[in-house]
């Protein structure tokens, strides 16, 4: 399917604003902690593709999710990860890129046994 436009060349003139080059060396990465909807949506971060996956886990996640009472209880060895719809076991020392995280990828994670405040999934 395609756009209905007066200008037959419309599709060639499209300017995509979210191209990777526009993010000054970063790529946009989305992260979502499942069953904890106190955080209303997945979080967006501009991150260097070469950043180790472990840095995301050790530095970024605690900063932005740490205020939830469940966060301290996470057993990281049991966490289930999904990158762009595919279940994976990320290698912490490898880069985001080498773990298959690209521009506008979404990383979702489940923390077994933890399903939010009073099991409300919040």
């Amino acid at each position: 399917m395609s756009v209905v436009a007066l200008d037959k060349q419309y599709a060639d003139k499209v300017e995509i604003r979210d191209r990777l080059e526009n993010f000054h060396g970063n790529q946009v990465v989305y992260v979502h902690w499942e069953d904890h909807l106190m955080f209303c949506a997945a979080l967006a971060f501009p991150l260097p593709p070469g950043m180790p996956f472990g840095a995301l886990v050790k530095e970024i996640l605690p900063t932005y999710y740490g205020m939830h009472p469940d966060f301290a209880k996470i057993d990281w060895s049991k966490v289930r990860w999904m990158i762009d719809g595919i279940e994976t076991s990320p290698r912490l020392e490898a880069s985001l890129q080498d773990n298959g995280v690209g521009h506008k990828s979404i990383i979702r994670f489940w923390t077994p046994g933890l399903d939010g405040y009073k099991h409300s999934r919040s």
């Binding site: 979502h32 997945a42 979080l43 967006a44 900063t63 932005y64 979404i106 405040y117 409300s120 919040s122």
Partner: peptide
């Protein structure tokens, strides 16, 4: 089922002086 617990949790956090602000930007 879904929303009262969320608001009650935030009320507790407010009481403890830890009013919740989401400091990361959301996916749109």
């Amino acid at each position: 089922k879904y929303y009262r617990p969320r608001f009650e949790m935030w009320a507790e956090m407010e009481k403890e002086g830890k009013r919740f602000y989401n400091n990361a930007l959301p996916q749109l």
